[in-house]
Computed example of a mutant assay.
Amino acid sequence: RRTATADTELEGQQIKAGDKLALWYLSADRDESVFENADQIIVDRANARRHLAFGHGIHRCVGARLAELQVSVLLEEMAKRRMRVNVLGEPERVAACFVHGYRKLPVEISRY
């Protein structure tokens, strides 16, 4: 969330200084200003690769495969050592509109 610092207009909407604003990433590949018949699934759409991911260009998560490999190796090594993670308490969530993650999660590692 942000607070507007000056009066302005955005897409025909008046915004006054002091107004509270939140940005929601909802359209993605259904953005009516970019795609004709945006709510229809058209697999051979000419401009299908123009959708915005996280508000900034085509999303290509170059680290996704590495992250999957790291978790896979971690779980394999823990299983070899007969180790497990035990949750000790309630998680403390990240207070954000867009990220639904954890700030803290108390755990212990034990053997079985």
Rank of each mutant, 00 (worst) to 15 (best):
V34G: 07
V43F: 03
N47A: 02
L52P: 10
Q40L: 14
I42L: 02
I15F: 00
I109T: 09
L21S: 03
G101Y: 14
D44G: 09
Y25M: 14
A64T: 09
L10W: 09
Q14S: 01
W24C: 09
P91W: 13
A96S: 12
R81S: 00
G63Q: 03
K20C: 03
G12E: 00
V43Y: 03
E11D: 07
F35N: 03
L10I: 00
Y102I: 11
G63E: 05
W24G: 08
R60H: 06
I58S: 06
R81P: 04
A38N: 10
H56N: 05
V73K: 15
A28N: 14
Q40M: 11
L66V: 00
L21V: 08
A17C: 12
G57F: 00
R30Q: 08
A64M: 01
V71P: 01
L23A: 06
R30S: 11
I58W: 14
L105A: 14
Y102P: 03
A95P: 09
Q14G: 01
A46D: 10
K20A: 02
V99H: 05
S110E: 04
E9G: 06
Q13F: 00
L105G: 14
R30W: 02
I41D: 11
L69E: 07
Q14D: 04
R45Y: 06
K80F: 02
R81C: 01
E32A: 15
H100C: 08
I41H: 10
A67I: 11
S33Y: 13
V107C: 08
F35Q: 09
E9W: 08
I42G: 08
E77L: 01
D19H: 04
R103F: 03
V87D: 14
R82W: 01
R103A: 11
V71G: 05
G55M: 10
D31A: 08
F35P: 00
G89C: 08
H51C: 14
E108H: 04
E108Q: 07
